[in-house]
Design a protein around this nucleic acid. Structure first.
Lengths: 134, 134
DNA sequence: AGTGGCTACTTACCGATGGAGAGTGATCAG
DNA sequence: CTGATCACTCTCCATCGGTAAGTAGCCACT
C-alpha cells in the first residue's frame, strides 16, 4: 500500500466520517454520477477516445465529460494519451490504480441494476401512503 | 399509473449507460455523498436517532440529512420509526433491502480509505506537472 | 479563396442543487 | 412565561450541472 514516500502518513486515521477528511472527498468523487460510468466503461472496453466515450455515456455533456476525465486523471485513476495529429486524437484508459476500482464499482452498478425493481416498487408504495396522509 | 407489470419486471434491459434509465438515477442516489455515509453508519451501528446521526456524520447540515433520509426511506432502504412522545423521538434503521447494500458500500468506502494516499500523491504530481506546463 | 468539417475542448449563461443558520410546534421543568 | 428538547422546515446565497455556442489547426471540396 505504501507506494508514496514523500506524501502523507500511510493511513493511520483516514475516516470518511470525519469532516474535511480527504477520504470523504475521494469517496464522493469516485461515487459521483459520471465518474462511475466513465470508469466502468473504460474498465469494460479498454482505451477509448473522447467522442466515443461521449456516445457511450448517453446524456453526458462535453463539459462534464471533460471535467470528469480531468479529475480522474489528476487522481491517477485514468491516463490521458495525446497523439499530436490533425484532427486531434486523444485516448483515455485506466491506470493500474484505476483498475483496482473496477471491482467495487462493478458490484455497486450491479446492485443498482438488480434492485431497481424493488426500489421502484418501494417508491410507489411510499407515494401512495404519502397521498393518503396528505 | 401503477401497473403491476412494469414494477415486478425482473430486469430485462435496465442499463445505467442509457439516458434516463431508473438504474442510473438509483446508482447516482446510492453513490451520493451523504447516502453512502448514512447507510454505512446505520449498517455498522444499527438503529439511530436523527440528532445522533447528525453528530456521527460530522459536517452534514440538518437539511441535507433530512433530505437524504427521506430519499432513502422512499427508496425502501431505510425505515423510519416515530415514537409519539414529547419531545419527538424518531429512529432510523436499515430495511432488509438496505442491508443488501452494506457489502457494496463497505467495499467502496474501504477502497477510498486504502487508496487515498496514492490519490493524494497522484494529485501532487499532476499539479506539479501542470505548473511546469503553465 | 473560401467554406465547411473533423476533434477535443472552452466559455458564457442560467436554472437547479447544496450549505448555513434561523424559525417552528409541542410539552414540560423551573 | 421563559427556556430547553427534538426533529424538522424555511430562507438566503454560493456553487454546480446542463445547454449551446465558440476556438484551433489542418484538410477536402467548390
Amino acid at each position: 500500500m505504501a507506494t508514496a514516500e514523500n506524501v502523507t502518513e500511510p493511513m493511520a486515521s483516514w475516516d470518511p466520517y470525519t469532516r474535511g477528511c480527504p477520504s470523504r472527498d475521494l469517496l464522493d468523487q469516485i461515487g459521483s454520477k459520471w465518474a462511475v460510468l466513465v470508469l466502468g466503461e473504460l474498465g469494460k472496453h479498454g482505451a477509448c477516445r473522447f467522442t466515443r466515450l461521449r456516445q457511450r455515456l448517453a446524456g453526458v455533456s462535453e463539459k462534464m465529460l471533460t471535467q470528469t476525465l480531468r479529475t480522474l486523471e489528476r487522481d491517477g485513476l485514468v491516463r490521458r494519451t495525446v497523439y499530436p495529429e490533425v484532427p486531434p486524437h486523444v485516448e483515455y484508459d485506466l491506470t493500474p490504480l484505476g483498475q483496482t476500482l473496477r471491482g467495487p464499482l462493478r458490484v455497486l452498478t450491479q446492485w443498482s441494476v438488480e434492485h431497481v425493481g424493488e426500489v421502484l416498487a418501494a417508491r410507489q408504495e411510499y407515494d401512495v401512503r404519502a397521498e393518503g396522509t396528505a
